[in-house]
Computed example of a mutant assay.
Amino acid sequence: MPPGACDAHCHVFGPGARFPYSPKRTYEPTDAPAAQLRALHALLGIERVVLVQASIHGHDNSAMLDAIAQSPDTYRGVAMAPASIDDAGLRALHEGGVRSLRFNFVRRLGGAPDLDAIRSLAHRVKTLGWHLVLHFDPQDLPVYRQFLDALPLPYVIDHMGRVLAESGPQQEPFDALLDLMKDERCWVKVSGAERTSHLLSAGPGLPFEDAVPFARRLIEAAPDRVLWGTDWPHPSVREMPDDGKLVDLLPLFSDDPAVLHKLLVDNPTRLYWQD
């Protein structure tokens, strides 16, 4: 990994005894505390981190903020917040290292949030220089095109839109994602190869290689607006991936070292370390 490499999508879970999980959570997590994440990043050679608030903690960002406070120069955060949050609450999140709000549209995680609330919050956080992070089911990408086109600020789509490799590269959700990438406000994370893939890691070669063509096309479409992350600790996957092998997929995403440097260093710097 190059100096300054960033894992732009990972989580901390608990520990539950200190940071209780939301009673409205839709799955039962295993503790994945900040110390464990730091050990993984030290092993992989990752120097900077963007923590993403997971649904299992709901709107309580305490575990994430605690992890950021331990490394305020190299950690940033993506929070979840209710529409009722006041300006002082948003400012406190900013001072704690948060630079974005995340909204889950995934059906198994509760489905579409209140679009009017998102629009209202989008206008408010724009003044802080923030962006939105949006987590969609693939079939919903075309459905929300009008909503996305009207957003007043940049937005990032998680995990390649969760498209499924088994549906082929010409599928409607991926076409919709590529079309969205023509908009300068749209960013995409080429993360979640283990979610896109229908291969298991026991096969020949590197695991999840059928996700590579999707990542390559997204990077080629907008090399200045792509991010990469491990998605550690990989909640709700059918098979737990080896994070080192996810890193090993990166040279397959692009043959150009300069493009990989954008993906891992330059792009996250522009989006999360502007101040």
Rank of each mutant, 00 (worst) to 15 (best):
G168P: 09
Y21E: 12
L121I: 06
A211E: 02
Q146C: 07
A83G: 15
Q274H: 13
H234C: 04
L206I: 01
R99I: 08
S120K: 09
R108V: 12
N267H: 05
S55T: 14
Q53R: 08
D256C: 11
R124N: 11
H41C: 13
Q170E: 15
D31Q: 11
A193H: 01
D149I: 00
M160A: 04
A34I: 04
P241H: 03
V226Y: 00
L199D: 13
A150F: 05
I85S: 08
R108F: 13
P20N: 10
L180W: 05
Y27N: 05
R38Q: 14
A32C: 04
D31A: 13
H159A: 09
P29L: 08
D116V: 10
L121K: 02
Y27C: 07
T127Y: 03
P20G: 10
T269R: 15
F214W: 11
C186D: 01
E95L: 15
M160R: 02
L141E: 02
K189W: 04
K262E: 08
V143R: 15
E209M: 08
D158F: 00
A215G: 05
Q274S: 14
S100G: 12
A83H: 10
G96K: 01
E194Y: 12
S201D: 07
D179Y: 00
V143W: 02
R162Q: 11
D242T: 06
A39M: 11
W187N: 08
L134H: 05
Y272P: 00
D73W: 06
P3H: 13
I219G: 05
N104M: 11
V247W: 05
E220W: 00
S197C: 06
S236E: 14
T196G: 01
G129R: 04
Y272F: 15
D242P: 06
E95V: 10
L227V: 09
S191L: 04
V188S: 03
F147A: 09
L101V: 12
P207S: 10
P213E: 11
D116K: 12
A258N: 11
S22M: 12
V188N: 02
R119I: 05
A112I: 03
R225H: 11
L151A: 12
M160P: 03
L218Y: 00
R270H: 09
F214I: 06
L200M: 10
T230M: 09
I157W: 03
G77I: 03
D87T: 14
E194N: 07
A92L: 12
D87G: 04
F214R: 03
A122S: 14
R217K: 14
D158Q: 02
A5M: 13
E28S: 13
Q171C: 11
L37H: 04
P33K: 10
G205F: 01
E172K: 13
D158I: 01
D242H: 08
E239S: 05
P251Q: 07
W228L: 01
D210C: 05
T74A: 14
L132R: 09
G14Q: 10
A67G: 07
H94E: 15
A202K: 08
F136P: 01
T269W: 01
P223K: 10
A79L: 07
L227I: 09
F105M: 09
E209K: 00
D137E: 14
E239F: 06
A165T: 03
T127C: 05
L164P: 00
R225V: 07
P251S: 13
G89D: 07
R48V: 12
A79Y: 09
F253M: 13
F208Q: 00
V163Y: 01
R185T: 08
R102V: 03
